[in-house]
Design a protein around this nucleic acid. Structure first.
Length: 263
DNA sequence: CGTCCAGGTCTAC
DNA sequence: GGTAGACCTGGACGC
């Protein structure tokens, strides 16, 4: 696949990513790249593909579950995520209370209007990465309503971008592997305190942070679970009970159970 | 053309 | 603590 990632010093690079295994990939970057930038690109792609995520605890439990042993066999579960926690938070807000096509349109507007541009091979269209928080922070209401057409989400996105840009909130330190590793409950409370981020968005963002304890319940996952199991009256409490045996990996187990037919 | 609602959240009871 | 209404947008549907 083609990936375009931003560089800290400005600009961006596009690359072709070829899977070697579930934990290794080949990167062919278009355009020049200084050593420090190369390291940055590798780090970003590692995050996106979760090449270094340790899922052994999950596989240990999945082995004994006929519904999910396939995941252990295939070393599945490295759900693709964005280049940063900030990007995952903004994108998640863009999934709330709207259709998937609206989500795509809102994110596309952010990237095509504000994203840093990457040099491309001659003949191919220029590509952009997701814009930095500081860039989103300086946009006015006209951009969010008139260009992005985010509706009431605009003020949420702007407020979070300002908080991240001025250092009030540090989303990147919320990842499971970060040295300052907080407990899931602390991360949950912090995310819930963000404007526009409720229970659904919190559970989803935590999955993106490598924290799989919470199940993502929304108007797609719950009906999908009911259809797969034939248990049309089961509630979220019942679903949580079904996956409780997975402990800190309950959310991952639920998600893989729902999306097996995607593979 | 009006109503409903989609991979919800916030505010006000 | 639990729940009804409002909320931007736009596509799907019924009339």
């Amino acid at each position: 696949m083609l990936l375009t990632v931003a560089l800290r010093g400005g600009g961006a690079r596009t690359m072709r990513v070829t899977a070697h295994s579930n934990t290794a990939a080949l990167l062919e970057v278009f355009g020049d790249l200084r050593p420090a930038e190369a390291a940055e690109v590798v780090q970003t792609v590692c995050r996106m593909l979760r090449l270094e995520e340790d899922l052994s605890g999950f596989y240990l439990r999945a082995e004994h579950d006929p519904d999910l042993s396939w995941a252990a066999d295939e070393d599945a579960g490295r759900i693709l995520r964005s280049a940063s926690a900030f990007e995952d938070v903004i994108k998640t807000i863009c999934t709330t209370n709207c259709t998937w096509s609206a989500t795509e349109r809102m994110v596309e507007a952010l990237v095509s209007e504000l994203g840093p541009i990457a040099p491309s091979l001659s003949g191919s269209a220029p590509r952009r990465a997701f814009p930095a928080a500081s860039v989103l922070a300086e946009q006015n209401e006209d951009f969010y309503s008139g260009v992005m057409r985010a509706g009431y989400r605009g003020q949420y996105i702007r407020a979070i971008s300002v908080a991240v840009a001025n250092g009030t909130v540090n989303l990147e330190e919320l990842t499971r592997e970060h040295p300052a590793a907080l407990a899931d409950r602390e991360v949950e409370n912090l995310l819930l305190s963000l404007p526009g981020v409720g229970p659904y968005a919190t559970a989803h963002i935590m999955m993106m942070l490598g924290r799989f304890s919470r199940l993502v319940f929304d108007s797609w996952t719950v009906p999908k679970y009911r259809n797969l199991t034939g248990r049309h009256r089961i509630t979220t409490k019942g679903i949580e009970r079904r996956f409780r045996r997975y402990g800190e990996y309950a959310g991952l187990a639920f998600w893989l159970y729902l999306t097996r037919d995607w593979l």
